[in-house]
Design a protein around this nucleic acid. Structure first.
Lengths: 135, 135
DNA sequence: ATACATGCAAATTGTTTGCGGGCAG
DNA sequence: CTGCCCGCAAACAATTTGCATGTAT
């Protein structure tokens, strides 16, 4: 892969990110370093980076494509349904039962994703204080 | 919810379906009974049915919104990456560890989804025979 | 009768593509 | 130099919305 200015910026953003980013979020961050970078460049490079295994694509319930660094420890995602905060969960309960699943279904399973949705600690606190009236 | 002709058709399609259907797939099926039914009607009613808890929305890696009957036994999905076949898996390894996850993350988890991807028995067979040359 | 649903067409949103010029190797 | 890459604009695809009309209650 040819190392263009734009690609360096994109790779850095993805590798620094604490959670998966959408194409638009990536472009906005990139604009701080290179305001002329086009959204189509973001998409084209994300596609290439997916092919090369440099990043991974995820979709939560909103259907937006989000991208994160590849090569991290196997993990899943926790999404706050109130504020949208997303974070990684390093726990996976599937490995232990994957063989059972394959045996039961006849499939050869190559990949899986687990998304958990709920309220993050902050939004949970807010919700409680709204109900009680004690902030 | 007012029981219109179109809604009866839509509900029946969703309740009969063996796997989650996209809006377009639902419309195509519906056209066999009511060729004038509009795609926007499908979307508007799916939205309403989601609010009322009459159906659930799912997204696999292609990002398309798919819909399935609500009120089924808790389950997850297995998707063949070759032919697109989708089926339900009645096994869930999360219930046992959900409390651990909540304790570790501080989230209140309200919902989760697990999608498994791989080759279905048929496509697995085809792939093997292609390699060996023995059909 | 009235409020809510529908069909149609147009608008939005996220993503992809075609093209002429630009830059990394 | 040369082929891949970029920015821009236009094309697409999925979904949403506005509006005039139709229909379940």
């Amino acid at each position: 892969m040819r190392m263009t200015r734009q690609r360096k910026v994109l790779l850095e953003i993805i590798n620094q990110a604490a959670s998966p980013l959408s194409a638009e979020e990536i472009m906005l961050q990139a604009h701080q370093q290179d305001p002329s970078l086009a959204l189509s460049t973001v998409y084209r490079n994300l596609e290439k980076m997916l092919e090369l295994g440099l990043c991974q694509q995820i979709r939560f319930q909103d259907g937006l494509a989000r991208f994160e660094q590849a090569g991290l420890v196997h993990h899943h995602h926790l999404v706050c349904t109130a504020c949208g905060r997303r974070e990684a969960v390093p726990i996976c309960p599937l490995h232990q039962i994957q063989q059972q699943l394959e045996a039961a279904s006849g499939y050869k399973i190559t990949y899986h994703e687990i998304n958990l949705y709920g309220l993050c600690p902050d939004c949970l606190k807010k919700q409680v204080s709204e109900q009680t009236g004690h902030p």
